[in-house]
């Protein structure tokens, strides 16, 4: 289960740059494509402010 805390998120796109599947995109805010995501946690680990959680 992928989730993001929008209050914490700075919309910096760091998570987008590490996603190996192209499952993330930065528009106004971060957009997540559940169908492409493999829950690898790259985004969770990269986030500078701990906004992404994968459980």
């Amino acid at each position: 289960m992928w989730s993001i805390d929008r209050d914490k998120c700075m919309a910096c796109g760091g998570c987008v740059s590490v996603c190996p599947r192209g499952a993330l995109e930065l528009k106004e805010e971060i957009i997540h494509d559940k169908k492409l995501c493999i829950l690898c946690k790259s985004c969770e680990k990269t986030c500078p402010v701990n906004a992404i959680k994968i459980e």
Binding site: C12, G13, G14, V16, S17, V18, C19, P20, G22, L24, E25, L26, S42, K45, T46, C47, P48
Partner: peptide
């Protein structure tokens, strides 16, 4: 690096060992 377009174009992304947060 923050855009999904580089991945769409040439499949470039930065693995965790090659990026600083």
């Amino acid at each position: 690096a923050e855009s999904a377009l580089r991945k769409k174009a040439l499949d470039i992304h930065s693995p965790l060992n090659l990026i600083d947060s």
